[in-house]
């Protein structure tokens, strides 16, 4: 049995992981995280009316932005006629925010990516094109090709959200370090398990 509720935009929304109902009101939070970096281009992109309207139209109610060392402050909102928007720089409870999110929009750091995938949350990774040695694109694109997440640039984020199809996401099976350990043990002459 999947609870079905009438979403804000009028469409039917299935309750997914992270959605919560407080006092009969459905909360669907979008959590944006840039980790320890500064990534103002991403914060600016989610702060545009265009992106906020698409998110609201898709049934999201809250937008929480972790802006790291960035200097661009997004506009706060109490959600009178749209999303409730809030932001902060750093927090020790990123894991809790990830857990309560219905959608995560993240920078391309491998820590954030795998933490979100392990929680089974829909994830859009936004690549920072201003970084000099931007090898992180490789990881985001590889995982996007395997349909574990969506990959976007700040300027294409609105299109990605618009075409977001949560059904097409293939859940990520967490890897493990046992093969590495077995090879190390074999090399050193230790028992392999």
């Amino acid at each position: 049995f999947t609870p079905v509720l009438q979403g804000v935009s009028g469409c039917i929304i299935k309750l997914g992981m992270g959605d919560s109902e407080v006092g009969g009101k459905l909360t669907r939070m979008v959590f944006v995280t840039v980790g320890t970096t500064s990534f103002d281009a991403l914060v600016r992109a989610v702060d545009t009316e265009q992106v906020k309207q698409i998110l609201y139209a898709r049934g999201y109610t809250h937008l929480l932005i972790q802006m790291g060392r960035g200097t661009y402050n997004p506009t706060k909102s109490h959600g009178e006629d749209g999303l409730v928007v809030d932001y902060f720089s750093f927090s020790s409870s990123i894991a809790d925010h990830l857990k309560s999110a219905s959608l995560v929009i993240s920078h391309a750091g491998s820590g954030s990516i795998f933490e979100t995938l392990r929680l089974g949350k829909p994830l859009i990774v936004v690549v920072n094109e201003d970084l000099m040695d931007n090898h992180q694109i490789e990881l985001a694109e590889e995982l996007a090709e395997r349909k574990h997440l969506y990959c976007a640039r700040p300027q294409t984020l609105h299109q990605t959200i618009e075409s977001l199809n949560l059904e097409s996401i293939i859940p990520y099976t967490p890897g493990d370090a046992k093969p590495v350990a077995a090879l190390i043990n074999r090399f050193l002459g230790f028992p392999e398990d």
Partner: peptide, 28 residues
């Protein structure tokens, strides 16, 4: 591979790096 006949414990140096690096190393 070492021809380690003693099978005793080995002193181990673990080099850590920021963020994702450390998480991966602790997994190993």
């Amino acid at each position: 591979p070492l021809r380690n006949k003693s099978l005793g414990p080995v002193s181990t140096l673990i080099v850590l790096g920021s963020g994702g690096h450390t998480a991966e190393m602790l997994n190993v």
